[in-house]
Every structure is written in structure tokens, then in C-alpha cells.
């Protein structure tokens, strides 16, 4: 027992560093850039064999050469970054020659960087072989267009429209480049980082508060103008009479 300055007695803590179990040791953050890369090779418990497509990546490299910008292997998943001008040819080659017939997902991301700010990704599956590949395309802010793949994978149609709706990236050759979720006359792209999450007041109208009135542009009309009232006069209730 020891007594510290405030006079509180407490047990002396003896720490044997060798016997202390580090609770975080089972889940090390070995992939964050802040950490030094470890030399020790541990198997990733989430890694799957189906996402390692070295043969396909080699075939793409042999066919397209310099158009393949970067290949990364993270958690046993291959990600192939390619130049955006060849995305349609790469997809057609993957579908016709390499058996990747199913586009699972297509979406966009705002990386909020100076160069090549936006990114569009394509997750494609070879159903027969049970293999998955991820393609990525970077888009610069000055030229927000990507060639469409909706004629190769028709399922890309609405996904590309969603990317256009949320990020404002246009898809060249898309036959129906309209918004999906938001009204046609909405002027902003909400998934861009500079868009305020709470929205821009006056950008989306509410319906009229009575059959005769016009659109409501105040998003908090009930708080500012009073509650919405019925278009017919409600009879007085017995309670109101008593008051």
C-alpha cells in the first residue's frame, strides 16, 4: 500500500509488461497509412479467394497495356484503375472474352482532391467462374464525363443516372441521362462534399398548403406561418365551447 499526495491509499500497481495482453492485438490496423507497414504476413480473416483475379488482371494488362493505370490488391481484392477513355472497351472485353457477364454495382465517390476529384467504380462478376473484379475510373472536375457502359451492361442504366443525380457526372452516350431521385429542376448535386447536408433552403418546394395557394418554398412553413389548416372550416368542438 502506498499513500499519494492527497492522502488516498491505493494498491501499488505492478505492471509486468510481458504478461499484459494487448486487447487490440487481435485487430491491428495494418492497412491505415499512418502505421508502418508490417513485415509480418498475417492472413486477413475477411479475405476471399473469389476476389483474387490475377489471371484476369494479367489478361487486361496484356490487352490494354498503358491504359491500365494501377492495380492494387487489398484484403485479397483486386482493384484495377483504368483510364476513363477505355472503360467501355475494357468492359466489353471483360464481358465477351473473359466471362464477366454481370455488373453488380456501379457508383461514384467524391474524393475532394485537387486533381481527379471524382471516382466511378464498377463491380463486375464472372458468374460461372465465381470471380469478382473491381474497376475504377477517376474523373477530373474540369471534364465531368465518363463513357457509358449501359450498352454493354444494361443494368448500368439507373446506376449511371444515380451517379449523375448525386455527383453530376455525365455519362457519354447514355440515352436517358435524367435524375433518378431528385426533381428535374433541382440545381445541386447532394453527394458532393461542398453540399450542406441539411440542404439549401428554397431549393426544393413543398406542395401548396391549400388548394388555392402556390408552392411552399419555406421548408419550415408550419413554424413560420402557422399550422396548415383544412380547406373547409371545421365545426367547433365541444371542448372549444367550454373554454
Amino acid at each position: 500500500m502506498t499513500i499519494d499526495e492527497s492522502g488516498v491509499a491505493h494498491k501499488k500497481e505492478v505492471v509486468d509488461k510481458k504478461n499484459v495482453v494487448d486487447k487490440n492485438a487481435s485487430m491491428p490496423f495494418e492497412f491505415t497509412s499512418a502505421d508502418e507497414p508490417t513485415t509480418e504476413q498475417r492472413p486477413n480473416p475477411h479475405a476471399k479467394e473469389s476476389t483474387n483475379v490475377q489471371a484476369t488482371v494479367d489478361a487486361l494488362k496484356a490487352r490494354f497495356g498503358d491504359a491500365i493505370v494501377d492495380v492494387t490488391l487489398y484484403a485479397n481484392e483486386h482493384t484495377v484503375r483504368i483510364q476513363k477513355s477505355v472503360i467501355a472497351e475494357v468492359c466489353r472485353h471483360l464481358r465477351d472474352e473473359l466471362g464477366f457477364t454481370f455488373l453488380v454495382d456501379l457508383g461514384g465517390a467524391d474524393r475532394f482532391t485537387e486533381d481527379e476529384r471524382y471516382e466511378v467504380f464498377y463491380n463486375i462478376v464472372n458468374v460461372k467462374a465465381g470471380k469478382r473484379i473491381r474497376l475504377k475510373v477517376r474523373v477530373d472536375e474540369d471534364e465531368l464525363t465518363v463513357p457509358t457502359v449501359m450498352y454493354i451492361y444494361p443494368g448500368a442504366n439507373w446506376n449511371e443516372r444515380e451517379v449523375f443525380d448525386m455527383l453530376g457526372i455525365r455519362f457519354d452516350g447514355h440515352e436517358d441521362m435524367r435524375r433518378v431521385y431528385l426533381p428535374e429542376d433541382f440545381e445541386y448535386y447532394p453527394l458532393r462534399k461542398e453540399f450542406p447536408q441539411l440542404g439549401i433552403p428554397g431549393s426544393l418546394p413543398l406542395p401548396p398548403r391549400s388548394p388555392e395557394a402556390g408552392l411552399t418554398w419555406d421548408p419550415f412553413a408550419a413554424a413560420h406561418q402557422g399550422p396548415t389548416i383544412k380547406s373547409y372550416q371545421e365545426p367547433k368542438s365541444a371542448d372549444e365551447d367550454q373554454e
Binding site: 431521385y181 450542406p196 447536408q197 426544393l204 408550419a222 396548415t228
Partner: peptide
């Protein structure tokens, strides 16, 4: 849903 796309109470346009 305090975000740009969701009406913050239907009493803004309906008499509840």
C-alpha cells in the same frame, strides 16, 4: 432524417 431530402414534418403541408 435531418437532411436535405426529407420533409421536416408533414404538418408543413398537411393539416394534421
Amino acid at each position: 432524417h435531418r437532411c436535405y431530402g426529407v420533409v421536416q414534418g408533414i404538418d408543413n403541408f398537411l393539416p394534421v
